[in-house]
Structures are given as structure tokens and as C-alpha cells.
Amino acid sequence: MANDKTSMQLIARGILAENPIFKLALSMCPAVGISTTVMNGFMLGVAVLFVQVFSSMTISIFKNVIHPRIRIPTYTLTIATWVTVIDLVLAAYLPDAYAKMGIFVKIIVAFAIITMRLEMFACKETVKDSFWDALGMGLGFMVGMMVIGFVRELLGSGAVMGYDVLGFKPLLFFILPSAGFFVVGLMMGFFNWIELYYKRKKGVK
């Protein structure tokens, strides 16, 4: 099955049409757990992007020698290897950010989104296409995390990227850990509402 999309289309699909957080609703744990600031979202986004790109390329390179029956264990071990790499790198070079993310870096190994991309895309397509697809998915995850982080940080502590922009705290509640569920739920509802609104407009015309 050849892929007929250009690299830009693949990236755009990952960020918009098949956004892992808002559209596919996969890998929700970090979106709720540590998305209190834009920076946290960005850091975990980078980690996921790294793991996604490298495991997709690894699987794509070796797709012809992996027996179909053992493909899932192979995926898992490939992902686990790359997660170990990023885990050790972050722990060594960015200990502060690593401490904030806690167990979530190691948890990347169980993210459904990465395995899903390997199963649906990387094991059939060329290395180049897999790279763009993985980049799109990783960026989509990163953008999703940063958007949630932006909303929570702006409304919760009146700041963006640690800089105070509003000067007051509109909804302190949003920075509390349990508010993660509310923020994600409300944002999903909001995006659905926009989609429904445009569909209805089209229907009228």
C-alpha cells in the first residue's frame, strides 16, 4: 500500500485532522497530569516526538525482517529502548525538568499513540514517509500538550511560559491537579462545538 501524501500533508494530518490528544483521544494521562504550564507540555512533547520519530524509523528500516507474529513484542521493545535513551538523557542534562515530569517520561513506553503509528503506518511505508508521519504525530501531541498548558497557565496563574502577563489570577482553580480533567473536557467540548457550528452553517447553505 503506497502512501500518496506529501510530507507536509502528513505533518498537517498529525497536528490537525488526527491530533492525538483532541481527535484520537489517546495518551490522555500526561495531558491531564502534568499540563499545568506550557513548558511542561513542551518538554514532554519533545520526549514523545523523539521516541515516536526514532521508533517509527527503526521499525520502518527493519520491516522486512520482522515476522508478523512477533511484531507487537518487537514494537514494545523498540519503544522501550528509545524511552530508556530519552529518560537517561533528560535525567542527565535537564534534571529540573525531569524531576517535574516524574514518572511520566518512563510511562511513554505504554502510550497507545506510538504503538498505533508503528502498527498502522511505519510497518508498511518507506523510511522517509514514516519519518514525516511520526514527526506530524509527535508535533500534534506536543501542540496539544502546549495548548492545554497554555490555557491552564494563563487562566490559573496569569502567566505564559513563566512570565506574568495578566497581572492577576482569573481562575486559580485551573492550576490545581484535579482541574486537568475539567480543562481537557471543556476544551474537547469547545472544539466539538466549533466543528458542529461549521457543519450546521454548511448544511444551511
Binding site: 483521544a25 480533567f181 475539567f182 481537557v184 473536557g185 471543556l186 474537547m188 467540548g189 469547545f190 466539538n192 462545538w193 466543528e195 458542529l196
Partner: peptide, 12 residues
């Protein structure tokens, strides 16, 4: 509300 059906309301 239709825009909250499914996952959004579950999250809340």
C-alpha cells in the same frame, strides 16, 4: 449538549 456528548462529559 451535543458538543459535550461522549468523552468531554466523561472528563468532567
Amino acid at each position: 449538549p451535543p458538543s459535550f456528548k461522549g468523552l468531554p462529559i466523561a472528563f468532567i
